[in-house]
C-alpha cells in the first residue's frame, strides 16, 4: 500500500476556487508533469520547497495556506 507523507495540502480546494483549474493547467504553470500534481494532491509525494512556493504563487496565497504539517 502506498505510504502517505504526513504533510497535508489544500491544492484540490484551491484549484476549485481558482475556477476549477485542471491538474494539467497547474502542472503546466509549475513545470512538472500532471502525474506529479496528482501525487502531491494525494499526499504520496512531498514536493521540493521550490515547487511548493511555485504552487502557492500560482494561487496567490502563502505557503501555509497550501501545505500543513499537523502536530503528531
Amino acid at each position: 500500500m502506498a505510504k502517505s507523507t504526513p504533510i497535508t495540502n489544500e491544492i484540490r480546494t484551491l484549484r476549485f476556487h481558482a475556477g476549477e483549474m485542471t491538474q494539467a493547467e497547474l502542472a503546466r504553470q509549475i513545470g512538472v508533469t500532471r502525474q506529479t500534481i496528482i501525487a502531491i494532491e494525494q499526499g504520496k509525494y512531498s514536493p521540493s520547497l521550490e515547487v511548493a512556493f511555485k504552487i502557492a504563487r500560482v494561487f496567490k496565497v502563502g505557503l501555509d495556506a497550501v501545505f500543513q504539517y499537523p502536530e503528531a
Partner: peptide, 15 residues
C-alpha cells in the same frame, strides 16, 4: 506530456 515545454525536468522523476 512530451510536447509540454519545460516538463522534461520533473523533480519527481529525478527523485
Amino acid at each position: 506530456e512530451l510536447d509540454q515545454a519545460g516538463v522534461v525536468d520533473d523533480e519527481r522523476d529525478h527523485v
